[in-house]
Design a protein around this nucleic acid. Structure first.
Lengths: 108, 108
DNA sequence: ATTATATTTCCATAAAAATAGAATTGTCAA
DNA sequence: TTGACAATTCTATTTTTATGGAAATATAAT
């Protein structure tokens, strides 16, 4: 991933409300979660939520799919992975000695 | 780490110039890199660079140490790790089945 | 003491983002 | 075909961020 895209995506995660949305989307997994459910859990105005979602969609971190009158939001896990991969690649090369980041030791 | 702090730090990484600074800081390792060197490599006005650095310092991602008239900037690796740890913790619990994130398979 | 270097702070301006009410669109149910 | 529900788009306002020249501060060298 190129730096510009990574920065754009990080900026989207870099807002408390959107990071909270992100967290809900992760928990929801491939199935996704409806806009209404997000709104209920975060307790924010619909228009504000829509605004944040549209931003996350614009940088390709989220996609939506309609089912009746309900819109489901799903995290684009592949793209999240690509973003974290970028951070990894940038973070693991401190002064030529790889592995300063203890992340790989986590069991996920 | 709490969500608010994570968001604040992600927002700092979420700017092209600052992400480029971050990259240089990672490469520089514990030794650090001078403000002047960063400026030279990124080719931006000093006042603009100072502004970005001060933001990164404010959220505790960067620290500075003076040596003569040169100011060295060093990444607070521990804090970066804490941030990535937060993302990990949030990203690895999709619908109860851990491990959707392939990051641990990377060799860093 | 004076001058040069490194970097910041001050200042003003321009651009982008956040917020949320009101109106609108799309979908279903009676 | 009217009404309710889900969510978005429109619109306006406020707040925050980015940018960079000019002046100021700190340190070193002559």
């Amino acid at each position: 991933m190129q730096l510009e895209l990574a920065a754009a995506r990080l900026a989207e995660l870099g807002h408390p409300t959107r990071l909270a949305i992100f967290r809900l989307l992760v928990k929801a997994g491939q199935h996704g979660i409806s806009v209404g459910d997000i709104q209920q859990q975060l307790d924010i105005p619909g228009s504000t939520l829509s605004h944040h979602l549209s931003r996350m969609i614009k940088v390709n971190l989220v996609e939506q799919q309609r089912d009746g009158r309900t819109l489901y939001c799903r995290l684009k896990f592949i793209e999240v992975e690509a973003l974290l991969g970028f951070l990894y690649d940038e973070c693991c090369v401190a002064e030529g000695q790889p592995g300063w980041l203890s992340m790989p030791n986590r069991q996920c």
